[in-house]
Nucleic acid binder design. Structure first.
Length: 552
RNA sequence: GCGCCCAUAGCUCAAUUGGAUAGAGCAUUUGACUACGAAUCAAAAGGUUAGAGGUUCAACUCCUCUUGGGCGCGCCA
């Protein structure tokens, strides 16, 4: 949070400066880590932005600002200089870095957290795969991203609920039920063809086999119920292996089937609501959503002329239900192939009286699997799709989750099974986990010494002055920046990149600075730095759902 | 035809949302283990950010067009 402290200080100074210049509006300046060739801890573009507003030379403005800094901010900022077109470069005092390290050691895995009190309630809905088969690898990416977003928001103090929306009614359920029934009949010796558009997977046969082994007779079987039961069990096991846990499973039946005392479902009522409000209308015997009012390409059907509702009608009722449960913010994770639905759902949200920002839709691109340079085909109905389970069994949970989170959700992900399996430097998961193992090894070794000081209060942090040590502390503090950035962009991939960079800086520190030196004071303070590294590595990996082994 | 996303080093991808000389990993070349783990480090090489215009003190980032790719456009889910 060093950056935030600097920001607070600079904000005060800039506002004061603006006041003197008679400028009322705010200036949205940035504080950044300068490129490697620049010798400074942070840099700000404030002077350039102000100069533009008041039409003066940016370097002159910068000069006036650093004059104020040197008068008022000596507790944090060691020195400043002007560079380039008018950047102000800032050098941070060692005391400020030490203080940050102490905070990390004190707060441990709560570092960067905020009090949970008056924060928003957020609902993150993800995976939500139809219960028609095991999860495939695309669902896995959604699971990894959704779960990680939830963990990040939780760490930031939000009250977060993770929900799985279960489409357990409707057309595909009939197909599913019929698929199982066909397999059942075939196993019983009937010569019937299995329809080409039905679910081909072996798991369908397994369900039929179970029903036969339990001695169930054809007439007494509810194939839909039996199939959903077994498949849900499979999905729950897959998610369990992936260490993704849901707080709530929301059945579509709740809103589409369950009726109140007037015989109305939630879907009936929300359609009625829209109709009365004028956001839905009847045409050609169907009920239409006037989504063009809120920027959609065309209006959409809610209820077909044959009286059946569309999927969209359920979705309206479902999102209404979410808001009614008291969530201020909804986050939906969808595969990118659903992007065409964004406009209409955002329209619904606004018709329900909320702002379109109250619903955040994170689209993630598909995963393309590669094995031996050959792309692996993925189709949910072909029967030869790649299940999440098969990938998990092959490469392990940690690699799998890390790889899914390696890229921004928006970019397509190439998942190389052979690479993810490698326990070598080619594999970034191991590169990061190795840091924790190395640190742990040093801690273990340090216990053989009697001259090490353990009490943080008695440590002399001013001994940590080398470039490597300073870089490491600054990077630990950037954990918070990464949290904020991940929240802002709804994208956990910043953490995988952060961890790789942190590991890089740690390994450089390791080469240059021997921790267990003969100098007991120096060794003690460096050990505290190691502890800080472990706190941040473990917390960060935790946010990604990846473990931090003590040894590898 | 219309809409959304994308195009960055040989490959897979970043770039703190408009900042300084565009960065990592892999692959290639060269060096470093009698110090806490070499699953590591140091160094070299690799780029007209698809192309052309525009806005800006500053553009991979914003705007327009062109080219090439992915996806979506049903009273399907």
């Amino acid at each position: 949070m060093i950056k935030q402290n600097v920001a607070t200080v600079l904000n005060g100074i800039i506002n004061k400066y603006l006041e003197l210049e008679g400028i009322i509006e705010n200036v949205n300046f940035t504080i950044e880590v300068p490129p490697k060739n620049i010798d400074a801890d942070f840099a700000t573009n404030a002077a350039m932005l102000i100069a533009k507003k008041i039409k003066r030379n940016p370097r002159v403005v910068a000069q006036e600002i650093i004059a104020i800094i040197s008068k008022t901010s000596q507790n944090i900022i060691e020195k400043t200089e002007i560079a380039g077109a008018g950047f102000i470069n800032l050098h941070i005092k060692n005391d400020a870095l030490s203080a940050e390290l102490k905070t990390i050691l004190k707060e441990k895995n709560k570092y960067g957290s905020k009090a949970a009190n008056d924060k928003e309630k957020i609902l993150v809905e993800f995976v939500s795969a139809n219960p028609t088969g095991p999860l495939h690898i695309g669902h896995g990416r959604g699971a990894a991203i959704g779960d990680s977003i939830a963990r990040i928001l939780k760490h930031l103090g939000y009250s977060v609920i993770k929900e799985y929306y279960l489409n357990d009614v409707g057309n595909q359920m009939l197909v599913l039920a019929n698929s199982v029934e066909c397999r059942y009949r075939q196993l019983k010796g009937e010569k019937i063809d299995f329809p080409i558009d039905h679910y081909q997977g072996e798991y369908i046969v397994d369900i039929a086999k179970r029903l036969i082994s339990e001695g169930k007779k054809l007439e007494e079987i509810d194939f839909r119920k039996e199939a959903v039961k077994d498949i849900l069990k499979i999905i729950e096991e897959d998610l369990g292996d992936f260490e993704v846990e849901f707080d709530n499973w929301f059945s579509e039946g709740n809103i589409a089937v369950v009726k109140d005392k007037n015989g109305k479902t939630d879907v009936d009522k929300s359609c009625q609501y829209l109709l009365e409000k004028g956001d839905a209308y009847e045409k050609d015997d169907a009920l239409w959503l006037a989504s063009t009012k809120f920027g959609d390409d065309k209006d959409r059907v809610l209820k077909r002329s044959d009286g059946r509702y569309t999927y969209l009608a359920s979705d309206v009722a479902y999102h209404k239900n979410k808001f009614e449960r008291g969530f201020q913010k909804l986050i939906d994770l969808w595969g990118a192939d659903h992007h065409g639905y964004v406009a209409r759902i955002k329209a619904c949200v606004q018709m329900l009286g909320f702002s379109k920002e109250d619903l955040d839709i994170v689209l993630y691109q598909l995963v393309s699997l590669v094995r031996n340079g050959q792309p692996v085909a993925m189709s949910t109905r072909s029967g030869e799709f790649v299940t999440l389970k098969s990938v998990l069994d092959e490469v392990g949970k940690d690699s799998c989750r890390f790889f899914f989170l390696l890229r921004a959700p928006d970019s397509q992900l190439e998942f190389d099974l052979e690479l993810a399996k490698k326990q070598s430097s080619e594999n970034p998961v191991f590169y990061v986990q190795y840091v924790n193992a190395r640190c742990n090894s040093i801690l273990k070794e340090s216990r053989n010494r009697t001259d090490i000081v353990n009490d943080t209060e008695k440590i002399n942090f001013n001994l940590l002055t080398s470039k490597e040590e300073r870089d490491l502390i600054k990077k630990l503090s950037a954990f918070y920046d990464t949290l904020i950035l991940s929240e802002k962009t709804m994208s956990p991939h910043h953490f995988t990149l952060y961890l790789i960079e942190l590991a890089d800086i740690y390994h450089r520190f390791y080469e240059k600075c021997k921790v267990l030196t003969d100098d007991a004071n120096l060794a003690s303070s460096r050990l505290k730095l190691i502890e800080g590294v472990m706190v941040i590595i473990q917390t960060s990996l935790g946010l990604l759902g990846v473990s931090s082994p003590d040894k590898m």
